[in-house]
């Protein structure tokens, strides 16, 4: 039963990622694109967790943690660039 639920969830998250990519391409403004990227990395974390569940291993959690940290820093850097025109002043 877990296997079936896992596949349905995987399909949902992949669909969600595709919708994010649609927003990423469509825009219309730069903040929309950054927001789409932000949501995309959170979806990537979900995908990695699901992969770990499917393979029955916890090794991938470290990768998920790194993506969480790096994705947040990336979002903040991009938002700061949009606001100030430079990342490090």
């Amino acid at each position: 039963m877990i296997t079936i639920a896992l596949y349905i969830t995987l399909a949902m998250v992949v669909l969600a990622a595709l919708l994010n990519v649609y927003r990423l391409i469509r825009g219309p403004d730069a903040p929309d694109r950054v927001l789409a990227l932000d949501t995309l990395y959170i979806n990537a974390i979900a995908l990695i967790i699901l992969l770990g569940l499917a393979l029955g291993t916890r090794l991938y959690l470290e990768a998920a943690l790194l993506i969480a940290v790096m994705g947040f820093v990336g979002t903040v850097a991009m938002a700061k660039y949009l606001k100030r025109g430079s990342v490090i002043e």
């Binding site: 639920a5 969830t9 995987l10 949902m12 669909l15 969600a16 979900a46």
Partner: peptide
């Protein structure tokens, strides 16, 4: 059952968030 339900709820909310974004 708990794991399957949690997975489906999680997937559903992730999808709804993306639909909202789109």
């Amino acid at each position: 059952y708990v794991i399957a339900a949690l997975l489906l709820i999680g997937g559903g909310f992730t999808l709804i968030g993306a639909i909202g974004l789109a």
